[in-house]
């Protein structure tokens, strides 16, 4: 059974007044749309800027 939005919040230890839930849920939906923009295929070696590199001291 899927969790309600309020239950998901509670599972993360978070709580807001009930009246604020719809606007928070709408904002979360906007972020989910934003996430779709960056879910694209990328070559593994494309992002050297993101790689963890150590330099000799």
């Amino acid at each position: 059974m899927s969790m309600s939005f309020e239950e998901k919040l509670a599972a993360m230890g978070l709580k807001v007044p009930p009246a604020e839930l719809p606007k928070l849920e709408a904002l979360v939906a906007e972020l989910a749309q934003a996430a779709e923009v960056v879910r694209i295929a990328r070559p593994y070696l494309e992002e050297p800027q993101s790689a963890f590199r150590l330099q000799r001291a």
Partner: peptide, 10 residues
């Protein structure tokens, strides 16, 4: 509260 809490869902 709303704008900060929304980040929990990313």
């Amino acid at each position: 509260r709303r704008r900060l809490m929304a980040g929990a869902f990313v």
